[in-house]
Design a protein around this nucleic acid. Structure first.
Lengths: 157, 157
DNA sequence: TATTGTTATACTCTATAACTATA
DNA sequence: TATAGTTATAGAGTATAACAATA
């Protein structure tokens, strides 16, 4: 007889399912040759076109240096462009290109498919209830709507 | 006027909250000088004492090489020990030490605190309902109870 | 002197492949 | 020849620090 293994709580279920959902999304969005961070950045740019990189970094909660690398990757593929601000030449306003805007629509489609697949076990009423409960917890924990916490690393303890 | 940003679905909420929960747990469990993967391994060993490293790797869905490094770290701290099997000297049976067993109890306490904190916004009925819905989805998606999907990496598409 | 953006560098985590010992 | 475990190595992703341009 040895000590019992402590049972997992609801938080673990949430973590487990959240990681699974993230992996499944990464796999799906990979078909568009995008990574999840790139996808989130595209959304952030679409939501606030012309933002400076500093502003985007603040919004996503990530170091500016990481944002530079992400924007580089998207710019090379012609999805976004940097436009220098003549009034303050330090600033680079980031905009979606037409290709970026088109790809955003594809992202929306992939996200809906992902959603349907993941929650296939729940009927519409259950889905609504789940969403409600998750939103309540997310609000209580101060999570910014639409911003993935993976852009920042928490300090140890 | 530009193209609208596609709305996030319930799956995103799940991913967002799951990542948040994982970060919060990592922070808490860090107070015991443990990482989440180490914690999961301790639980797996407690659940099947004397397993070979190969068996543990299979159960967690991780490459054996990663398991070696994890066991190394726990063994150096005196939390687990490898016992050579005399009948087949290739096998290393992994067991918790007394210190490991004691730490497991602390892990259980920390996990309960984490659970309570994370779901503070929900009343008992809501918590039960959330757990039920999450469990239903997890079962449908084929997630092994108590095993975090983060031990394995999914192939791209 | 302060701020935006960039580059250089190092660190952590994980995976792949090669190797050792036992069978 | 096959299996358990290990070591060596390399890659991806991210962070910290130093730097350049502009204000």
């Amino acid at each position: 007889m040895h000590a019992p293994v402590p049972p997992v709580g609801s938080a673990f279920l949430l973590t487990q399912l959240g990681t699974h959902a993230a992996q499944a999304f990464a796999q799906r969005i990979g078909e568009l040759d995008l990574t999840p961070p790139q996808t989130g950045l595209l959304r952030a740019i679409a939501g606030a076109p012309g933002s400076s990189q500093q502003a985007l970094a603040d919004r996503l909660g990530t170091p500016a240096t990481r944002l530079v690398a992400l924007v580089d990757g998207l710019e090379e593929r012609g999805l976004v462009e940097r436009r220098r601000n003549p009034a303050d030449r330090r600033l680079h306003a980031v905009h979606l290109t037409d290709a970026g805007t088109a790809l955003l629509a594809d992202i929306g489609r992939v996200a809906r498919e992902h959603d349907d697949d993941l929650l296939a076990a729940l009927d519409p009423g259950e889905r609504a209830r789940l969403r409600e409960l998750l939103a309540k917890v997310a609000a209580d924990r101060g999570l910014a709507p639409g911003v993935h916490p993976g852009y920042r690393t928490l300090p140890p303890a």
